[in-house]
C-alpha cells in the first residue's frame, strides 16, 4: 500500500513556491524539534525508572537468550504455519461451498463464513481450552491454539479466495469450455489458479493476522515466543526490556510480511482487489 501512496501525494501539492518552501522549512524544523523532544522524554523516562541499567539489557548479549527466544519463535512459527495451512484448506472448502450450485451448501457455507468472521479468536480459544475438555476432547496445547486461530482465519480466507475467483474474466472460463474442458477442470485448471494469483497479497496479509493471533498461545500454555519471553523475564527479572524486544520481533516479522505482500501486489495489480 505504501508504495501506491506516492501517487496521491504527488498531485496533492503543487511544486512549492518560495513562500511555501519557507513554510515547509519551518514546519520541518519544528517537527524535528518536537520529535526529538518526544524521543528524549521516552529515553528520560527509561532513565528515571532505572530501566536503562545493564542488568536489564546485558542478557541480550548472550547467545542463550537468543537461542531461547528463537526456540519460542519456532513454536510461534509452527502454530502459524499449521494454522495457515488449516485455514487455507478450510477456507478453500468454504469458498467452494459458497459458490456451489446447491442452495443448501451455499447457505451452510455462507453461515460458517459469517460465524468465523464475526467471532473473536479468543472466544474460539476459550471454546477449545475451557469447553472442549468438558466433552472429553483432550487436545494437545499445540492444537488448542492452532485450531481456533485457523478457524478464525478460515472465513476471511474463503472470502478472499472468492474475490479472486470472481475477478477472473468470464472469457477465461468460456474459452476453456469452448476447448471442450469439463466444469471441474475448467475451475481448477483455469479459473482458480488465476484467481489465486490475484489474492496472494491478501492471503499474506491474512498470515500476518494468524501470526498475531498466535500470541494468545499463553492462554493454553503453549510455549511460543511470548511464553518464552515470560520465562526469560522471571529468570533475569527484566520485564520491560524483554517485552519490548519481543514486541519488536513481532513487529519486524509482520512488517516484512506486509512489505512482501505490498511488493507482490505491485507486481500483479488487478483492479477491484484491495489488500487489507
Amino acid at each position: 500500500m505504501s508504495t501506491a501512496n506516492s501517487s496521491i501525494r504527488d498531485v496533492l501539492y503543487e511544486p512549492p513556491g518560495p513562500k511555501t518552501r519557507r513554510r515547509i522549512g519551518i514546519a520541518t524544523a519544528v517537527s524535528i524539534v518536537v520529535l526529538v523532544v518526544l524521543a528524549a522524554k521516552v529515553v528520560r523516562q527509561f532513565y528515571i525508572a532505572g530501566q536503562l541499567g545493564p542488568k536489564y539489557w546485558s542478557l541480550f548479549a548472550r547467545y542463550t537468550t537468543w537461542r531461547f527466544l528463537g526456540r519460542g519463535l519456532a513454536g510461534t512459527m509452527e502454530v502459524a504455519v499449521a494454522a495457515s495451512a488449516v485455514a487455507f484448506a478450510a477456507g478453500l472448502l468454504l469458498m467452494l461451498g459458497r459458490i456451489s450450485r446447491y442452495k443448501i451448501l451455499r447457505g451452510f457455507s455462507t453461515a460458517l463464513i459469517e460465524i468465523t468472521r464475526g467471532i473473536p479468536t479468543l472466544l474460539f480459544i476459550y471454546f477449545f481450552f475451557l469447553l472442549a475438555p468438558q466433552f472429553g476432547l483432550k487436545l494437545p496445547a499445540f492444537w488448542k491454539i492452532t485450531l481456533p486461530v485457523a478457524i478464525s482465519a478460515a472465513g476471511v480466507v474463503a472470502e478472499v479466495l472468492r474475490s479472486g475467483v470472481n475477478a477472473v474474466p468470464k472469457g477465461q472460463a468460456e474459452a476453456a469450455v469452448s476447448l471442450g474442458m469439463r466444469g471441474g477442470s475448467v475451475f481448477f485448471k483455469i479459473v482458480f489458479p488465476q484467481g489465486f494469483r490475484y489474492v496472494v497479497p491478501a492471503l499474506i496479509s491474512e498470515i500476518v493476522i494468524v501470526l498475531k493471533d498466535t500470541t494468545f498461545a499463553y492462554v493454553v500454555n503453549y510455549s511460543d515466543l511470548m511464553q518464552n519471553a515470560k520465562v526469560l523475564i522471571s529468570n533475569y527479572d527484566a520485564l520491560l526490556s524483554v517485552y519490548l524486544v519481543t514486541a519488536v520481533i513481532y513487529i519486524l516479522i509482520n512488517y516484512l510480511l506486509h512489505k512482501l505482500s505490498v511488493r507482490i501486489a505491485g507486481r500483479n495489480r488487478i483492479p477491484g482487489i484491495t489488500i487489507e
Binding site: K212, D213, T214, M226, L239, L240, Y243, L244, I251, N254
Partner: peptide, 17 residues
C-alpha cells in the same frame, strides 16, 4: 503489525516499570 496481546501485555505489565 504489533499483536494485540503483545501490546496489551506491554501496557499492563511493562509500563509500570
Amino acid at each position: 503489525n504489533i499483536p494485540g496481546a503483545a501490546l496489551l501485555i506491554f501496557l499492563v505489565y511493562a509500563l509500570p516499570y
